[in-house]
Amino acid sequence: MSATDLQNHPAARALAQRHRLRVWEGLPWLLALACYFAFPRYLGFGTEILITVLFAISLDLALGYAGIVTLGHAAFFGAGAYTVGMLAKNGIWTEPITGLLLGAAVAGLIGFLSGLVLLRTAGLTLLMLTLCFMGLLEESANMGADFTGGFDGLDSLPIKPIVGMFEFDVLYSKTQYLYVLAVLFVCFVFTRTLVYSPFGHSLTGIRENTLRMHAVGAPVERRLVICYTISAAIAGIAGALWAQANAYVNLSTLGLDRAATVLIILVLGGYGRLYGAFVGAFVYMMLEHFLSKLYPEAWQLGLGLLLVVIALFARGGILGIGEELRRRFRGWRNKP
C-alpha cells in the first residue's frame, strides 16, 4: 500500500474521525429544552435528573474510561455541596457561579490528595479505601456540627441570583433547571473533548491493560491521579449545583446510598460511553419516581434483579443492548 493508501485506510479514517459530532448528539439537549416548556411543573425533578447526569458523567470518566473501580464517589459530590453550603450559611460566599468553581476546587483538591495515595492500590484494596475514605468524610461532617450542621445539615442557604439577575425559583425551579442544564452542557463538552483526546485514549489503555501501559512508557499513576482529580472536580460541581438548587445540604450528599446509586445509574445506562450517564439517570430516576413510592419493595426487588441481569448478561447496560441489537439487525439485513 502506498502512503496515501495508508492515510485513507478505513482504520486510519475511523480513528481520525472518531471524535466528530453525530447528528443524534443534539437530541438529549433538544429533549431537555423541550421538557422545560412541556413540563413546567416538574422542573424540580428535572433539575435533580440533570444533576445526577453530571455526577454520573464524572464517575464515567474515572470508572468507565480509566477503570478506577470506586464505591466512594459521593465523597466528592458531598465535598462540593458542603463547600457551597458552609460558605453560604456563614455569609462568606453566596455568588453561585464562582461558588461552583470553589466547590470544584475543593472537591478536586480532595480528589488529588486522596488519589495520590489511594491510586497506588488496586482491586479490593482500592474499593475498601474509597469506601472508608467516604465514610471518614461523612462521619466528619456528622461530627463537625458547628460547621456542617451535623445530622440535620444546613438549610435556607442564601444564594445570590445568577449573574445578579436570575433569582433561584423556590416553587418551580425554572431558573435552576436552565442553570443546571447550562453547567451540564459546559462540563459535558469538556468531558467529551477529554475522552477523545490522546490523554483520554491513554486512560482507556490503562483500563484495558495497566501492565502494558507501563511497558509503553506511560506514567500510569500520574495519569490516574489527573483523571481522578478532574473527575472529583466535576462531581464537586454536581454537588455544588445540588446545594444551590435545593438551598440546603445534608449528610445524604456524602453517603454510601448516593455513591451506590450513581454507580448503578451509570452501569444501567452503560459505562465508558459518555451517554450512558444520560440514559441511566433518566431511566432510573423515572422508574424510582413513579415506582418507589407506590411499590417500594417491588422497586427494590426489580432493581436488584436488574443489576444481577446486567452483571451476568448485559455488561454494556441499556446502550450496550442497543448497540448489540443494531449490529444484529444490520447483520440480518445484509444477509443475501
Binding site: L71, L124, V267, G304, L307, A311, L312
Partner: peptide
C-alpha cells in the same frame, strides 16, 4: 460460579443486586 472470572465491577454489581433482592424479599 458464572462470575468467578468476571471483573470486580461485575461482582460488585451482581452482589449489590442480590442484597437489594434479599432486602426486598425479607421486607415483603
Amino acid at each position: 460460579s458464572r462470575l468467578y472470572r468476571a471483573t470486580e465491577l461485575d461482582q460488585v454489581l451482581f452482589t449489590i443486586g442480590l442484597v437489594f433482592m434479599m432486602i426486598a424479599s425479607v421486607t415483603l
